[in-house]
């Protein structure tokens, strides 16, 4: 049984995704929709981290239920830098690069949830399967958001 490995990896990757979303929002504070929605979506990662830590106990894991924190000083510096850069054209390309990265990380998390759901089914772990069924759709929505923002932002950034 390697269920604990999958849970542990998901706990790590959800924390990473939260970090990527927060970084994205700070670096693109002047792109207001990106800023606000990214922060809304961090909530889902944090919920997942908590749930994974709780269920991890059943598999002998001691995972931190508190989502990995961000240094608020670094956060503010990045937000300020974003404001200064707001009048330049380069942030358009930077946004594309960051959204592309987000898409890849979120897709990775989505795959991890698929692995967990497969394992839970094989091991007949109902509670674990339910967790995957509850959380995975939210990860998929995060993936689709990254994809949609990329599509919407690409043309102006690339043709202007």
């Amino acid at each position: 049984m390697k269920l604990d490995l999958v849970i542990k990896e998901l706990h790590r990757s959800e924390n990473e995704l939260a970090h990527v979303l927060l970084r994205l929002s700070e670096r693109h504070k002047t792109d207001h929709e990106t800023y606000h929605v990214a922060r809304d979506l961090v909530r889902w990662c944090h919920d997942h981290v908590r749930e994974l830590a709780r269920i991890g106990e059943d598999y002998g894991l001691k995972l931190d239920a508190e989502p990995a924190g961000e240094s608020t000083v670094a956060e503010r510096v990045r937000e300020k830098a974003a404001e200064w850069l707001g009048r330049r054209k380069e942030p358009g390309l930077l946004l594309l690069a960051d959204l592309r990265h987000l898409y890849r990380v979120a897709s990775g998390v989505s795959l991890d949830w698929e692995l967990l759901a497969q394992a839970a089914q094989g091991a007949r772990r109902k509670e674990l399967l339910e967790l995957a069924e509850r959380c995975h759709p939210q990860t998929l929505r995060q993936v689709r958001w990254a994809n949609a923002r990329l599509k919407e932002s690409a043309t102006q950034a690339l043709v202007s």
């Binding site: 929709e33 707001g86 009048r87 054209k89 942030p91 102006q156 202007s160």
Partner: peptide
């Protein structure tokens, strides 16, 4: 290729100089 640009985004494009 995408929905017509909404007003708030237009002002963002003006801000960064592409409109």
């Amino acid at each position: 290729y995408s929905p017509p640009t909404h007003a708030m985004q237009m002002f963002r494009y003006i801000e960064e100089g592409s409109i």
